[in-house]
Structures are given as structure tokens and as C-alpha cells.
């Protein structure tokens, strides 16, 4: 199944202002993998994801999706395979109503009106937003916007689903819903997030990025339990793996305050 392959070879990327955000990233993701990408603020996660559908083209190195190398020419073809959910849903939802927005992609793929309608309804039902379909995006809550952005992408039925911070702004129930949803999506998925518990639950594999370089790559279960690796990269253990008891030092401070002087 080579058409679901994502391969980065020594990818570098420099922003127009000179910031070098990627300094040679290499990895290979094969069909059906679920990969989490973690790293501190400014590590280069968003920049990395933006290379995957040609939002930005690498300054050096190559990106290969399926059997196509990413260039200006192959970009439209690659965009049909890779669906990206951006970090800010206001950028993703640009049509006057939710329904029109979800229909936008399928219509551009040249589908029939009836087929489009079916896709739209299925996608909205999948993310639990069917009732919002006539609303304009500016009247949705942050979490609803996020859910609808995801619907706009799954309506196009991509081979590879790429998401930047999908769980931010979601309440616990919507977050749980999204996790279950992603677990059901059987194609390749790549998720960048600070929510390490989310990654632990949704992804089998995990990449750690630090200052534009991939510094660790392995099974999510191993990486996310490696306390020293995480702390080196300004991260900490997923909350679910931290001990719930109150640390000694806090107890001590609290006790001292109780004692009358």
C-alpha cells in the first residue's frame, strides 16, 4: 500500500524572515500508522505538518507522499490524499454556513450534488454536528468549530489525516468523542499535540521534535513514559501516568502553615 506512505528525507525549512524552523527532519510513516508528534512551543511541529500537503515547500530535502514527490506540480494531486486540520479553525472554515463549508471539498473533487449531500451529512454525523449544519461558522463555539473543521476534512475521504492540536479548546466529553473517532479512522493519521494523554491513547508511534530536529522516534508507550527524555524536551509525563498523590514538599509546606507561630 505505497500510496499511504509519508516520507521525509532531510527536510529543512526556512521562513522568509530567516528563522530556520526545520533543520533536517527525516522519518518514514507507512500505511495505517498512527503517529503523534510532540515537542515544546516553537519546536517546529506546525511547520512540519504544513509540509505534508504543500502549504509550504521544503527549502531543502524531499517530502514523498505515496509514490509522488512533493513539488509545485504534484501538489494538487497530493492534496487529494492528505487532509490537514489546521491549528486555528477560523482559518479552516471560510464558507457562509457549516453545510457549504463541508460541501466545499467534495464539490471541488467534482462529485455529483447527491453524492456530495451524502458525504456532508455523513461527515457531520460522524463528528456529532449534524444539527449545526445551517449555522454560519462565526456563531459556533470554539469546540464546535474544531469538530466542524474535522468534518470538512473527513468529507474528502483522505488517505492520510493530519491534525494540528485537535484537542485544544475541547471540553472533556468532546475530547473523548474525538479520541474514539480517531481510533476508528483506519487510514494513516498524524497528530501534533501538547495533550500527551491524547497522543498516548490515539497513537501507536511517537516522534519528539526539538529545535527543528527529530530527537526521538519510537512506540508511544515507550517515549511517553521516558521521563528524562520528556523533561529534556520541556515536556512532562502524561497526566494519566503521573502519580496522583500530593508531593511531599507541598504537604510539608501546607503543614507548616497550620502550625501557629
Amino acid at each position: 500500500m505505497s500510496h499511504h506512505l509519508v516520507e521525509f528525507e532531510n527536510v529543512r525549512f526556512r521562513y522568509p524572515d530567516g528563522t530556520e524552523a526545520l533543520k533536517g527532519a527525516s522519518f518514514r510513516i507507512t500505511h495505517g500508522e498512527s503517529v503523534g508528534i510532540i515537542g515544546a512551543n516553537g519546536a517546529g511541529k506546525s511547520t512540519l505538518l504544513m509540509q505534508m500537503n504543500g502549504y509550504m515547500l521544503p527549502s531543502a530535502g524531499t517530502v514523498t507522499i505515496g509514490d509522488l514527490q512533493l513539488t509545485k506540480k504534484t501538489r494538487p494531486e497530493i492534496r487529494k490524499k492528505v487532509g490537514v486540520v489546521f491549528q486555528n479553525p477560523d482559518d479552516q472554515l471560510f464558507m457562509p454556513t457549516v453545510h457549504d463549508d463541508v460541501a466545499f471539498g467534495p464539490l471541488n473533487l467534482g462529485m455529483h450534488a447527491e453524492k456530495v449531500q451524502e458525504r456532508v451529512l455523513t461527515a457531520l454525523r460522524t463528528v456529532g454536528c449534524l444539527d449545526l449544519r445551517e449555522k454560519p461558522p462565526h456563531r459556533l463555539s470554539g469546540g464546535q468549530k474544531r469538530a466542524v473543521s474535522i468534518a470538512t476534512v473527513i468529507a474528502m475521504d483522505p488517505d492520510i489525516l493530519v491534525m494540528d492540536e485537535p484537542s485544544s479548546n475541547l471540553d472533556p466529553k468532546s475530547r473523548r468523542y474525538l479520541m474514539n473517532l480517531l481510533k476508528k479512522f483506519e487510514h494513516t493519521k498524524i497528530v501534533a499535540a501538547h495533550d500527551l494523554d491524547f497522543i498516548l491513547e490515539v497513537c501507536r508511534r511517537c516522534l519528539v521534535i526539538h529545535d527543528g530536529r527529530i530527537v526521538a522516534d519510537g512506540p508511544a508507550g515507550e517515549i511517553l513514559t521516558d521521563q528524562s527524555l520528556l523533561e529534556e524536551n520541556n515536556l512532562e509525563l502524561p497526566l494519566s501516568l503521573q502519580s496522583r498523590s500530593v508531593p511531599e514538599s507541598v504537604v510539608a509546606r501546607f503543614d507548616r502553615r497550620q502550625v501557629p507561630e
Binding site: N53, R79, F104
Partner: peptide
Amino acid sequence: RIYHAMLSRG
């Protein structure tokens, strides 16, 4: 960014 989001969806 919006323009790119539009391009991303064909």
C-alpha cells in the same frame, strides 16, 4: 492561510 485552506480542499 485561508487561501491555502481553500487550496488544500481542491
